[in-house]
Amino acid sequence: MKIETIHKLCCPFDKADLSLTEITKDVNDNILEGFFVCSSCNRLYPIVKGIPIMSPDEFREFKLERPLVEKWQKHLKGKTFENFRLTEPLPIEN
């Protein structure tokens, strides 16, 4: 996906801004792998083979997406991917 196009996208549900993490690009600078995170609802939208997955939660497949996002662990800055959202890890209970 072209970077210019990516910059014009917003969250499909609350229309808030998205922050982009680029992971791999092709020779023309198109993004092949990466993800967006919504600044309001914290939903994470992966970009797979150059195609962003931005469908409603009930159409997404967590089982397929989780291994992919876990592969990007170092880009998640300590946050966890749960219920399609990037969240702060829960404090460990004593």
Partner: peptide, 14 residues
């Protein structure tokens, strides 16, 4: 041409 998986009732555009 760019492709997006998304829902016509919740479009990810301004």
């Amino acid at each position: 041409i760019n492709m997006i998986v998304g829902d016509s009732e919740n479009l990810p555009f301004e």
